[in-house]
């Protein structure tokens, strides 16, 4: 794996996390940050649809399942870094925050943002997932063997 692949993998990780994060939670977490860098829009936020595909039988040929709403934007910091925001739903401010964080994660402020924003988002996402899994686990069926006829 090259250094570029590693970087892409890391970036994929935070962009995916930002896309799935609840808009309000991201707004709350970034509310503490006051010194946002200046930027110019490369693509102002726009709401659109993405056609979600599935596979026949789960593994076979693709088919179109239906669309989901997505908001995207792209911006460039005064220092040159380009940030992309792709988030689920129709919240333009959410996409803007995601793009800004994506750009700033490419600067020396990456560590600060990871601690202040990404780690808490990840923790919350994992907690929600664990809470669903725990409830599902409680509904798992234990079978008991009844008296069998052949004995």
């Amino acid at each position: 794996m090259t250094a570029q692949d590693d970087q892409n993998e890391a970036r994929k990780g935070w962009m995916s996390l930002l896309a799935k994060s609840p808009a309000q939670r991201l707004a709350d977490l970034t509310g503490e940050i006051t010194d946002w860098p200046g930027f110019e829009w490369l693509r102002p936020p726009e709401v659109g649809g993405v056609m979600v595909r599935g596979r026949t039988g789960g593994t076979g040929a693709p088919f179109n399942l239906g669309e989901m709403t997505v908001t995207r934007c792209a911006l460039r910091l005064a220092t040159g870094e380009v940030g992309h925001g792709y988030v689920q739903g129709r919240d333009k401010a959410h996409a803007e925050r995601a793009a800004l964080i994506d750009a700033m994660m490419q600067t020396e402020r990456a560590e600060e943002l990871r601690r202040a924003v990404l780690d808490p988002l990840e923790t919350q996402l994992q907690a929600a997932k664990a809470s669903r899994a725990a409830r599902a686990a409680a509904t798992k069926v234990d079978f008991f063997t009844m008296v069998r006829g052949e004995d």
């Binding site: 993405v50 979600v52 599935g54 399942l65």
Partner: peptide
């Protein structure tokens, strides 16, 4: 809605 694209099969 403008169509942004399509997903990979889930």
């Amino acid at each position: 809605l403008p169509r942004i694209g399509h997903s990979r099969p889930v």
